[in-house]
Amino acid sequence: MSGIIETEVKDNGIAYLKMKDEKDKNTFSDDFVHEIIASLDELENNYQPKVLILSGMPDVFSGGAEKQNLLDLCDGKIHVKDLLISERLVNTPFPVIAAMEGHAVGGGFIMAVCSDIVIAARESRYGVVFMALGFTPGMGCTRLLPELVGNYIANEMMYTGKTYKGRELAEKNTQINYILPQAEVMTKAENIALQIIEKNVKSIQLLKHALSAGKKKLLIEARVQEDFMHKLSFAFPETKKTIEELYRK
């Protein structure tokens, strides 16, 4: 483990998974994807927490896809692996609270979409920027995003690729549980977690199993279409040019 993911399980049953890759802004490098999945496996297998709080850094929750990976996809060298994160999150046996103090874009925002309870910050920005980079949305976005924000807001977010301030989303009547001042995001997540841990862990797991069934089904449906669209859209010559241009520092 290279220390970009930090996990902690408290005696009371609250688990914390903190993404803290300062250098690469919690983007999905191979190491990052591997560590997220390994950390969730470890939590599930060794600790059986009652609830997980998934958080990032104060300024960035997650930046989503990484440039080199996207370019390799364009060249047909690799296949999309980010979906692994969506599947892993949806398949956790405990509820996940996404506490997004900082920005979440692209796949980073989809991590929240795959969670059970979502808290965002008024000052931070959130968006599914796939189309701005030239290719179609992935990670289950096409099916799961409408669940969180509603069909028509999801359409707007996907087609425009715009990043919205939390306070803009607050006016849109989405299903995001709370959109709060950044400093209050973690406190709210912990408050909800404290209410959950009062419940019987076996009943929590049963409920999670039932509530996640719909999401698992949507993810399977999404995968078929999104994989197909990726095969086409990553191969467009314009896509590679757009990625190289927009990721320039």
Partner: peptide
Amino acid sequence: ANSLDIIE
């Protein structure tokens, strides 16, 4: 302004 604000 942060980087995403500036882009917007």
